[in-house]
Design a protein around this nucleic acid. Structure first.
Lengths: 357, 357
DNA sequence: CTGAAAGCGCTTACAG
DNA sequence: CTGAAAGCGCTTACAG
């Protein structure tokens, strides 16, 4: 027979220790002034018995659930694992749980999902909207992770700078004729990435954009993008705005007999899980989700705490702290693998290399 | 100025309606005997004011949080989106929220994650363990989604039958020399899939298994699996236990100049998001996550409800219901796309086709 | 059919 | 430094 069949609650613990519930609460939270000696005794007993405060009791009393909501436009998004993992980790470190909500790509459902989360009493919400959906003002604290050029954005990767990384890399390898591949001209993220690439290109470099049409997207199947033809026209580098598109380009080129990276280079964005497992492994640009998540969570907790402490001084301090946060867009990293190599078709000298850290 | 600045709570609503809180509660839950007329009036007012019961209050009183925990061995798992989406959907339909926990592949952390979920007061937990990790008995109701051959499994896809689907498909196409590709001989899921394939193969068919070594896995990069050589030895079909491996095989073959599906066929498992977007699109086997999730959630809710209702009759009814549930393993579906085609190297006649629905 | 009362477990002023 | 008391919002026996 084990000593403790079930875990005690606050008052049982208090009775066992012959002190008041208030004192136990104070000792454990470190808030009230309790003698160090007593506090220690209480903490020891609590640990021994495995006391865990009831979230329900605390929530009812404080109005805080210590739970955050995470709403994604489409949970099936391949980036979701990375995002969810990073958010969960950061939230957990800050003492919060994470409730997920899926709006399945539907804008109307996104509103409903947010509503449900609020009904469940979350203290704040992290939203990753799709296609620049503007998030309406809601009662709860919100952190939006989108593109830096999206109004209302809280924090995100610096997609523009990520694009510059790609451009410099390709330029350094001698490429002078690029095809940029995306599927949604309305996406801020994609436009930032493409804009970043273009911003680094001298006028002597040709760079056209191929927007994959929705129906080509849907079919997926046999729908060729005509990349072989582009290659024959002189394109030596295919820069996609996401690994998904890069993979499609890579397989299409390979299938058409174009050797990657010997004859053509391919780059992606996001460093999805399989990107390093394919042959050749994909050169891509990764976002620092850990940092992004940390900043999103920290922005949220600051607002949440400020809510309870209408203390002038504190609030001001806190708010200014968030205001002067290093940046709201965190830099991306180029991951050079094997789908990129020197341009073969033309013998051009690499331009004076910029900073390439 | 809008009429309602903030949403009312139960007693405010009661006061507004000039009835007792108990009556409002009863009317809204439909439990107590309240005159239909009054009940209607109460519901109307509640809807008008947007009344939402406080989860915290309810949880404290009933001991139920209406939240389920979802723990995954590794949130970065590419299957995660599908699983999370299906679970979230099923749970939401059953009136539950979903709290995520990540054990990051670490067995010790899995225990910790479960612990944290319990501290947060979840009513039950859905676990997708990795590598046949046996889930220790914990206090809460648990549903395990693993392989049918894993002890303690609650529900899962019928990986064995999925393997049979692959075998029949390949056989029908005339393939007589297969290479089965996996990376973990200790995985029940992988063994089931491979076992299912083998179980359908006549002895005249050669089928060898290639277990990718961990270091080859890790390197990922340039590490070739030597598939070209296998092809030259006569292998015409490469059946991987997951799309990830299939993708690796496909890109390696394509890169080595082997035409898919003209010269060799490739199949995967799981129907990951990008599987239909590559060229050629991948033939794979998909699990019915919707159904799996529904069964997991329903198994959970049955146990949870049985807990509160020690009512002999009800419990027995319920438990028998779960016992005679159609099956605990749900069938998989073959998705034929473009990486599979007739065997070219040998002119063998297709065997009498089995049922191929 | 309806209501008054108690209590779920916690924390927070407020006394002492 | 410590404790008694109130109350967060709900539901559930129990009376009437």
């Amino acid at each position: 027979m084990s000593t403790s069949r079930t875990r005690p609650n606050l008052s049982q613990l208090a009775t066992l220790l012959d002190v008041s519930a208030a004192t136990v609460s104070n000792a454990l939270s470190g808030k009230g002034r309790v003698s160090e000696e007593l506090a220690e005794r209480i903490r020891a007993k609590a640990a021994e018995l495995g006391y865990m405060p009831s979230q329900a009791g605390r929530a009812l009393r404080t109005g805080r659930t210590q739970v955050l909501g995470l709403v994604l436009p489409d949970i099936a998004n391949p980036l979701f694992p990375q995002i969810a993992q990073a958010i969960e980790h950061a939230a957990s470190n800050a003492g919060y749980g994470v409730l997920i909500a899926d709006s399945r790509g539907d804008v109307a459902m996104q509103t409903k999902a947010i509503q449900q989360l609020q009904d469940r009493g979350v203290d704040g919400i992290v939203i990753v909207p799709r296609r620049g959906t503007r998030v309406a003002d809601i009662g709860s604290p919100v952190a939006v992770i989108d593109s830096p050029s999206t109004p209302g954005n809280t924090v995100s990767a610096d997609h523009w700078q990520g694009g510059q990384l790609v451009a410099r890399h390709l330029l350094d390898l001698g490429h002078r004729d690029l095809l940029l591949i995306g599927n949604n001209p309305a996406s801020n993220v994609q436009n930032d990435r493409i804009g970043g690439i273009k911003s680094c290109l001298p006028s002597s470099v040709r760079a056209r954009v191929l927007w994959i049409e929705p129906h080509e997207e849907a079919h997926g199947k046999g729908c060729h993008l005509g990349l072989k033809e582009r290659f024959e026209e002189g394109v030596t580098a295919f820069a996609a705005v996401s690994d998904l598109h890069a993979l499609r380009a890579l397989t299409e080129l390979q299938g058409a007999g174009v050797r990657v990276p010997d004859e053509a280079s391919v780059t992606g964005f996001d460093d999805l899980i399989w990107s390093s497992a394919i042959t050749p492994a994909l050169t891509t640009v990764r976002m620092d989700m850990e940092t992004i998540a940390e900043q999103a969570i920290s922005a949220l907790t600051i607002v949440i705490e400020a809510q309870t402490a209408p203390d002038q001084e504190k609030s001001v301090l806190r708010l200014s702290k968030v205001a002067k946060a290093d940046r709201t867009s965190v830099p991306m990293d180029l991951v050079v693998r094997q789908t990129t190599g020197p341009a073969s078709s033309q013998a051009v000298k690499a331009p004076p290399a910029g900073d390439m850290e």
